[in-house]
Amino acid sequence: MDLMELPSIESLDDRVWPKPLKAETKALSFSYGSRPALKNLSIPIAEYKITALIGPSGCGKSTFLRCFNRMHDLYPGIRYEGEILLYPDSRNILAREVDPIEVRMRLAMVFQKPNPFPKSIYENVAYGLKVRGLTDRRALEEKVEQALRSAALWEEVKDRLSAQATSLSGGQQQRLCLARALATDPELLLLDEPTSALDPIATTNIEELLLDLKQRVTILIVTHNMQQAARVSDWTAFMYLGELVEFGLTKQLFTNPSKKQTEDYITGRFG
């Protein structure tokens, strides 16, 4: 019997591409002046799924994330190439005619360190809604409660909504930022290492929240914590020196990565 009749790696290859997509980058490159930070990245963002970006410091994860809400626009000498398409309308976020404000209305972002506004808990969550022109008091209150419930913070703060946001603990502040992000019903939630400043319990709370939230919002998360990527994400992209090394189903990437670089990184051999 021919040994080749047994299934080989190639014939069993079942690597798949996500579908449907909420967003997608096509040949995205980005540079700060003459220094290229992202090189030709084509990464799909599956709808109602969590996509994790992993890679060593300086590999371009955060730069990639920030392209989505055009946070780089304020710096001089930056350059984008390629496209970031937002579905279902295939809107190219990077197109010249697209107003960054319009983009930011459809997305929301939570950062590494909790950054609540120096205002009350209520005002923090209501802020984005007011900016969008919502003035009806009842409607605002309802939305704020809903967002705080979504961020699993309502029970802890419902009796002190007028207290300063900075009076909350770190974990609570981060959930407040999440509530603030969720209040405006974003289509895509961008998270830049949202638990790196939190203790293990607050981290678990946020991770549980993300798993609940993906029922109704697509999530793109940058994380340094590989176990976190493995625990919460459906898809993982591994980046190195501004390039995409490997993209695939998280469960596949963490058990049987196809690239040696990915293997070395997730097993702690470099980075």
Binding site: A230, T255, T262, T267
Partner: peptide, 9 residues
């Protein structure tokens, strides 16, 4: 160690 990839296998 929470091994991954080949280590896990």
């Amino acid at each position: 160690h929470q091994p991954a990839a080949r280590d896990l296998r």
